[in-house]
Amino acid sequence: MSMLSMTGRMMFLVGAESVDSFMIKPCLKYHLFGQEVYLTTTHVSLVIVTILIMILAICASKKMKNPDEIPGTFQNIIELVVEMLDNMVKGIMGDNARRFVNYLSTIFVFILISNISGLLGLRPPTADYGVTLPLGLITFALIHYNGIKKNKMKHLTNLFQPFALLFPINLIGEIAVPLSLSLRLFGNVMSGTVMMGLLYGLTPIFVQIGIPAALHVYFDIFSGAIQTYVFCMLTMVYVNDKIAD
């Protein structure tokens, strides 16, 4: 909400229009229940990313319905990715991997393509706190659903361990999990977006030849892939913490 009002203030601060290319901008305004609601650049890039993933998934499933005996390029890539995700989940969760591998693979592909969508000229959807906070909250729900399912009431009384006085600290510790998860993803992607926006907006034109390519490799691909891995890894570690015997 406040991110929207930023755009105007940002222009007031810097006095240039091109430098705020990394801000969330409203594309379409409409009224819903008496509130002003905006469709922003985040929604647009989210839709594009989703369509991209859907096309990939449809192509992949069509290919794997009648796979070749000797896999071609596309089939090889699909098998490689699926195998890698399977091994990643199995490495942490062991026998419980089957229950979570679908969700974690989905999240992995979504965050990865969101993060590297900066290369396609989009504003990465994950550079909006409104996208990363729900992801963190889903992890929070997963952790506690599985904790209660596995440990029943003991899951709640664990908050009073080792003695009752520590209850507030334990509670803050639990609530900090989704916050830090989502802030980590948001902060990393956002900082990359801000850096690229400043580079494109403030530097003279001869600096913008060749140099941004190296920075794109670092901020979009390297940092994006690392943060995707870390998000999925931490989700697995937290959930596994609750369901491990």
Partner: peptide
């Protein structure tokens, strides 16, 4: 290492 660094970065 990556996991630990990510947590330290918070």
């Amino acid at each position: 290492m990556l996991l630990g660094q990510a947590v330290a970065e918070t």
